[in-house]
């Protein structure tokens, strides 16, 4: 892992002695591109937006003037106009943080996300701040799914309102996206999460990711996680999740409001790359990851062939 990180600083990843395969692939990709068969997927993401509808006020505070849904939407529209295959994802804690939530209960947050055409979100702990009922009441304003695989909501009002995962089809690609939530006990008032049962995120993640990658043959598996980036104790976090699972390509994280300089690439249980990214909070940043794929015939290319990583977009 240390080696991975070190190499990552040079914006390039090689795993073992198969770097030449990557180079060969790159040449092939020119052919694929010429044939129009190379597929590009653009992931855009936010986390912990916390009811920040407008930019932070100009009051001398650290984040003054940053964020705002109107700018985020304009940027997303621009990227959508340039890119064919875009997924817009959020990692939870949509609710709480400005009087917009206190007054309107999350109605506006979800309406604006729908207007921006978000593809999916997961459940953050603050999304329970008006109780299960408060979240349920606002769901008609969301025309995107809430993905959560490790909360059993059977005995709650949300029993039919969420799904563990969703498979998106974009330009011939299949992208499996699932959601993970944090332990609510001790964090959220018990009356607000009611009969929600928290299930082990590692076990659920392994099960769900294997299903998406092996059974449903997804080309990419993304986890929307509200577990938090990392902790000093051994509480489960995105770093623990990445190292303890396989079949997850990307973890879009939240909860800890972490501003990562660049996404972190962790070696997972399979020795493959699981990337973690989190973009602070309040919609101050929008994260973007472009993935390039090329078609291949069965058995010619092994799963988990190393791929090139750049911390900048192609010009």
């Amino acid at each position: 892992m240390e080696e991975l990180q070190k190499i990552n600083r040079r914006n390039f990843i090689k795993v073992g002695g198969v770097a030449s395969a990557a180079a060969a692939l790159n040449i092939n990709s020119l052919d694929a591109f010429a044939n129009g068969r190379l597929q590009k997927l653009t992931i855009l993401h936010t986390n912990d937006v916390h009811s920040r509808i407008e930019p932070f006020p100009m009051d001398g505070s650290r984040n003054q003037g940053l964020g705002g849904t109107a700018r985020r939407s304009a940027l997303i529209k621009k990227i959508r106009a340039e890119q064919e295959n875009v997924l817009l994802l959020d990692a939870g804690d949509i609710f709480q943080g400005t009087p917009y939530f206190n007054k309107y209960g999350g109605e506006l947050e979800l309406k604006l996300m729908s207007q921006m055409k978000y593809d999916a979100t997961t459940l953050g702990n603050h999304d329970f701040d008006n109780g299960i009922e408060g979240f349920y009441k606002q769901l008609p304003n969301a025309n995107f799914p809430v993905l959560i695989a490790n909360y059993d909501l059977t005995n709650t009002q949300l029993s039919k309102s969420t799904q563990p995962y969703k498979i998106f089809k974009k330009g011939g690609l299949k992208i499996g996206v699932f959601g993970l939530g944090i332990q609510l006990k001790g964090l959220v008032d018990p009356k607000n999460y009611g009969e929600t049962q928290y299930l082990d995120p590692i076990a659920i993640a392994n099960e769900t990711a294997a299903k998406l990658k092996n059974d449903y043959k997804c080309d990419l598996v993304i986890c929307l996680s509200h577990l938090g980036y990392a902790y000093r104790n051994n509480a489960v976090s995105d770093k623990v999740l990445a190292a303890s699972t396989k079949n997850i390509d990307l973890i879009i994280g939240g909860h800890t409001h972490t501003f990562l300089d660049i996404p972190e690439d962790v070696k997972n249980l399979d020795g493959q790359i699981t990337t973690i990214n989190q973009v602070g909070f309040a919609g101050i940043n929008l994260g973007r990851i472009d993935y390039y794929f090329e078609p291949y015939k069965a058995k010619k290319m092994k799963v988990g062939t190393p791929y090139l990583i750049n911390n900048k977009l192609d010009a």
Binding site: T275, R288, A298
Partner: peptide, 21 residues
């Protein structure tokens, strides 16, 4: 079947440099 060959990452700061919708 598709193989992942490359990943490019970028982050946008949402500041007043960006127009509004």
């Amino acid at each position: 079947k598709y193989a992942l060959t490359k990943s490019n990452r970028e982050e946008y700061k949402i500041s007043s440099d960006i127009a509004v919708d």
